[in-house]
Amino acid sequence: MNGMKRLAVLTLGGGIALTASVGTAAAGTQPYTPEQICGSGFQVVESQPLGKAGEARVYWLNNGPSNCVVTLKGDSYVGNSVKISASLTTGATVKVDGPAAYKYYAGAVKADNPTGECVVYGGTYGSYKFTSQPACG
C-alpha cells in the first residue's frame, strides 16, 4: 500500500464506516541537483533559501562564460502546488522560467556572458522572492 497504513473505524448502529490514512512513508524527495539540471561543467556559485525551513532554494551556477539559474523545491515540498520561478539577467537580457506549479524545479535559465556584463539572478517560491545584487566582471 505504498507505505501507508489504513485504519478503519466502524460505528455500530449507524452503519457508517470511516477510513483514515496514516502516513509512514518518507516525505517527497528532490531527485535532481542544480548541476544535473544545468548540465555538465556547471558549478554552484551562490544559492539562497526561499520560504521557511527549506521549502525551496534558488541556485546560480557558472560554466566559464555561461550562467544558469535553477529554483528547486525542498525535499518535503516536492510535488506541492506552490508556484516557483527562476530568472537570470545578463546586461540587458532577461530570461525567466515560471512562475508555474512545477513539481521539482524551475529552470534551467541559461545565458552566455562572454563580455563579463553584470549578472543578476533570482527566484520565487509562492510569495517568497529573492533577487541578487549585481555581480559584475
Rank of each mutant, 00 (worst) to 15 (best):
L7R: 14
A8R: 13
A8C: 06
V9F: 04
V9S: 09
T11D: 13
T11M: 13
T11P: 12
T11F: 12
T11S: 13
G13L: 05
G13P: 11
G13V: 05
G13D: 01
G13H: 07
G14V: 01
G14H: 06
G14Q: 10
G14S: 10
G15A: 07
G15L: 03
I16N: 11
I16A: 10
I16L: 08
A17R: 14
A17H: 11
L18P: 11
L18W: 14
T19R: 09
A20F: 06
A20G: 12
S21P: 13
S21A: 12
G23C: 12
A25Q: 13
A25Y: 09
A26T: 15
A26M: 13
A26H: 11
A27E: 06
G28D: 08
Q30H: 05
Q30I: 13
Q30M: 06
Q30V: 10
P31W: 07
Y32C: 09
P34N: 00
E35S: 06
E35M: 06
E35I: 03
E35F: 07
Q36L: 08
Q36V: 01
Q36E: 08
I37E: 06
I37L: 06
I37G: 02
C38R: 01
C38L: 03
G39H: 08
G39D: 00
G39Y: 07
S40R: 05
S40M: 01
G41I: 04
G41R: 02
F42C: 07
F42W: 00
F42D: 04
Q43K: 14
Q43R: 10
Q43H: 15
Q43E: 15
V44C: 00
V44G: 00
V45Q: 10
E46V: 12
E46Q: 14
E46A: 15
E46T: 15
E46Y: 11
Q48C: 01
Q48P: 02
P49K: 09
L50V: 04
L50R: 06
G51A: 04
G51S: 00
G51P: 03
G51L: 03
K52F: 13
G54W: 03
E55C: 10
E55W: 04
E55Y: 05
A56S: 00
A56E: 01
R57I: 00
R57D: 09
V58H: 03
V58P: 01
Y59W: 10
Y59L: 08
W60H: 15
W60R: 13
L61R: 10
L61I: 07
L61T: 11
N62D: 12
N62V: 03
N63W: 10
G64C: 05
G64F: 00
P65C: 05
P65I: 14
P65D: 14
P65E: 11
S66W: 13
S66T: 14
N67F: 06
N67E: 13
N67T: 13
C68S: 05
V69G: 03
V69I: 10
V69L: 07
V70W: 02
T71S: 08
T71C: 10
T71Q: 10
T71R: 08
T71L: 11
L72K: 04
L72T: 01
K73M: 06
D75Y: 07
D75G: 14
S76W: 10
S76K: 14
S76Q: 11
